[in-house]
Amino acid sequence: CHSECLGNCSQPDDPTKCVACRNFYLDGRCVETCPPPYYHFQDWRCVNFSFCQDLHHKCKNSRRQGCHQYVIHNNKCIPECPSGYTMNSSNLLCTPCLGPCPKVCHLLEGEKTIDSVTSAQELRGCTVINGSLIINIRGGNNLAAELEANLGLIEEISGYLKIRRSYALVSLSFFRKLRLIRGETLEIGNYSFYALDNQNLRQLWDWSKHNLTITQGKLFFHYNPKLCLSEIHKMEEVSGTKGRQERNDIALKTNGDQASCENELLKFSYIRTSFDKILLRWEPYWPPDFRDLLGFMLFYKEAPYQNVTEFDGQDACGSNSWTVVDIDPPLRSNDPKSQNHPGWLMRGLKPWTQYAIFVKTLVTFSDERRTYGAKSDIIYVQTDATNPSVPLDPISVSNSSSQIILKWKPPSDPNGNITHYLVFWERQAEDSELFELDYCLKGLKLPSRTWSPPFESEDSQKHNQSEYEDSAGECCSCPKTDSQILKELEESSFRKTFEDYLHNVVFVPRKT
């Protein structure tokens, strides 16, 4: 048989008469490798580009789960590009990614509803959504962080984005990388972005840091009482949809009607710091009717980097990364020049730590249904340095008659930039024990000054392991946590139920 035959053949030295091919099969003959313009397919066939392209389009058009959109890589027609490569849609070739590779997620039936953290986790790592997304989240724990972890990498949506009755959302900033909504599939009414009845939605994105392009379709905003109209108009300008909307697409009466839409800028007039305090004062603000001013709200939190936005980490279910302080308005003076500047002394802060701070007014709604208010920009203030805590785990070892090696770990709280350490030492008198000992005694162990690591005695271990207080009263049991108490109650309830079950099964009433 021919060298490319495997198993047997019907005619000697003829690659077209093989029972099976050793390498690849091409047009009725066995070959060692697939010549151009053919590609290896499933490690035994040679196919042309049209064959591989037909497989790709067949799966793409069917949208069946589990099928493969075949691509070409290293002269092979394979189910998908290997790690580190992405497909070129024009020629199906796998090309190296520039940075992290995109991950295209194809949605069944063309859309997916995100109504819980669990459903959001199914899209973790996706960068391109081939379909439409509907966000409908009523509640949950730590929602802002969970949504950002699972949806934060999405850069492109081919269909539309719909935010509907998501009472738990305060902001859409968890879509931190969303840059493009194509609108290839539109919501009824030709809408590519749809926001309806979101009672706590206050911000779409921080438009000073976020760009969003909507290729096709219109915007729809109705019944978002805490979303200011200025935020919607800003989205029109940034996304390129200005002029597409009709009169009733953006409701003037049901958007922002319960919001404090600040239209003035508060400026800080005085800032002073110490290692654990920050004193702030800002310019006074009074609405047209000074009785509408209820006070100020001061927001602050630790910020290692200057990239904080107002609604980071917030949701309507209680999660809030900001510390909020309510401040009463100052006494009002008739003389504008003698107006008191409101302020606040922030206490209990960490030394040498940068804080993000902003302040906003708290006002009631005027009778004319106009909203007044003022808010400052987010500023960054760093507390002063102070003395560091003591170095940890000092170790001293003498390696000769004239040297001592000293080692330690950095302090747990540096409280500033540590530039150097101060080492103090003092000579001590020799131990009298060394002169009084009889060095001729056998088995004498000389006193040693070398360091030995501390260890816990058996008594201390027994005390720590004991669940009861000892007789001397030195140790006591740790208080039980809520989960331990709940577990004990469940076990007790189970024992009672099981005992009742045994009584009912074992003891049967005697027939009379």
Score class of each variant (00 low, 15 high):
Ala259Phe: 10
Ile181Leu: 10
Asp393Glu: 09
Gly110Gln: 12
Leu186Thr: 13
Leu212Gln: 05
Leu196Gly: 09
Trp282Lys: 00
Asp289Glu: 12
Thr273Lys: 09
Thr386Trp: 12
Ser239Tyr: 06
Ala144Glu: 15
Lys218Ser: 01
Gln306Pro: 14
Leu169Arg: 00
Phe311Val: 03
Gln199Pro: 06
Trp205Thr: 02
Asn224Val: 02
Lys267Phe: 04
Thr361Ala: 09
Thr371Cys: 08
Glu236Ile: 04
Pro351His: 04
Cys317Val: 10
Thr273Leu: 02
Asn320Ile: 10
Tyr285Pro: 08
Trp207Asn: 09
Pro394Glu: 03
Arg281Val: 15
Ala144Leu: 14
Leu345Ser: 08
Asn211Lys: 13
Arg291Ala: 05
Arg247Ser: 11
His233Ala: 10
Gly125Asp: 08
Ile278Gln: 00
Asp315Val: 14
Glu368Ser: 09
Leu266Ser: 02
Leu143Pro: 03
Leu108Arg: 08
Ile379Phe: 06
Glu122Leu: 11
Phe290Leu: 03
Ser119Leu: 10
Ile163Ser: 02
Leu180Ile: 14
Gln258Gly: 02
Val170Ile: 12
Ser158Trp: 14
Ser269Asp: 06
Thr353Gly: 04
Leu212Met: 15
Lys301Leu: 06
Ile181Val: 04
Ser402Ala: 09
Pro284Cys: 14
Tyr380Met: 06
Ile157Glu: 00
Arg332Leu: 08
Pro304Phe: 12
Val170Cys: 10
Ser321Glu: 14
Lys253Asp: 03
Ile188Trp: 05
Glu310Ser: 15
Ile114Arg: 00
Asp367Thr: 09
Leu227Ala: 03
Tyr380Val: 13
Ile271Leu: 08
Pro287Trp: 03
Asn320Phe: 09
Gln354His: 11
Leu133Gln: 00
Asp393Leu: 08
Tyr167Phe: 13
Leu212Pro: 03
Leu196Ser: 13
Ile271Gln: 02
Trp205Ile: 03
Arg176Tyr: 05
Leu186Asp: 15
Leu331Pro: 02
Leu161Gln: 00
Thr185Leu: 12
Gly256Val: 12
Trp207Pro: 06
Thr323Leu: 14
Gly373Met: 12
Leu186Lys: 07
Val170Lys: 06
Ile379Gly: 03
Pro342Gly: 15
Glu302Cys: 04
His106Gln: 10
Lys301Cys: 01
Gln382Glu: 11
Gly159Thr: 01
Val170Gly: 13
Thr383Asn: 00
Thr323His: 15
Trp282Gln: 10
Leu151Arg: 00
Asp367Phe: 14
Asn263Leu: 10
Gln216Leu: 12
Glu184Gln: 02
Asp328Leu: 13
Ser119Ile: 13
Leu201Ala: 05
Gly125Tyr: 05
Gly373Arg: 08
Thr383Val: 02
Ser260Asp: 14
Gly343Thr: 04
Met346Thr: 03
Lys267His: 11
Ser376Gly: 03
Glu187Gly: 05
Leu153Glu: 15
Asp312Met: 13
Ile357Gln: 00
Ser333Ile: 08
Thr113Ser: 12
Leu345His: 03
Ser333Leu: 10
Leu280Ile: 05
Gly152Val: 06
Arg179Trp: 05
Val128Cys: 06
Val104Arg: 01
Gly373Ala: 10
Trp286Phe: 05
Trp205Cys: 02
Ile214Gln: 12
Thr309Arg: 13
Glu156Pro: 00
Ser173Glu: 06
Leu204Val: 09
Leu108Trp: 13
Leu345Tyr: 12
Gly295Met: 14
Asp289Ser: 12
Tyr194Ala: 06
Leu229Gln: 14
Cys228Pro: 03
His106Pro: 09
Ile137Asn: 02
Thr353Phe: 03
Thr309Val: 11
Ile137Ser: 01
Ile134Glu: 15
Asn307His: 15
Ala149Cys: 11
Arg176Thr: 15
Ala303Thr: 06
Glu302Pro: 10
Asp367Pro: 05
Asp384His: 13
Lys253Trp: 15
Phe299Met: 10
Leu186Val: 04
Lys277Ser: 04
Ala316Phe: 08
Asn248His: 03
Lys226Thr: 06
Lys407Phe: 04
Leu349Ser: 02
Lys253Thr: 08
Trp207Lys: 06
Ala195Asn: 13
Leu180Cys: 12
Ile181Gly: 00
Ala195Ser: 11
Lys103Ser: 11
Asn307Trp: 14
Leu345Lys: 04
Leu265Glu: 14
Lys301Ile: 08
Lys242Ile: 12
Gly159Met: 15
Gln314Tyr: 01
Arg244Gln: 11
Ile378Thr: 09
Ala149Trp: 14
Ser260Phe: 05
Thr213Glu: 04
Lys242Glu: 13
Arg369Ser: 04
Gln245Ala: 11
Thr185Arg: 07
Trp352Arg: 04
Val170Ser: 10
Ser239Gln: 11
Ala259Cys: 09
Ile214Glu: 00
Asp292Pro: 06
Lys242Thr: 04
Glu231His: 09
Ala316Arg: 15
Gln245Trp: 09
Pro411Val: 13
Asn340Thr: 12
Lys209Leu: 08
Asn255Leu: 12
Gly152Ile: 00
Ser116Leu: 06
Asn150Trp: 13
Ile250Glu: 15
Leu143His: 02
Ser166Trp: 00
Ile232Pro: 12
Thr273Ile: 07
Lys242Val: 15
Asn198Pro: 00
Trp344Ala: 13
Pro351Trp: 13
Asp326Val: 02
Val238Gly: 14
Lys267Arg: 11
Phe193Trp: 04
Gln354Arg: 12
Tyr160Cys: 12
Gly110Lys: 04
Asn136Leu: 15
Val128Ala: 10
Ile327Ser: 04
Leu229Ser: 04
Lys350Thr: 06
Pro330Val: 06
Asp292Ile: 06
Leu172Ser: 03
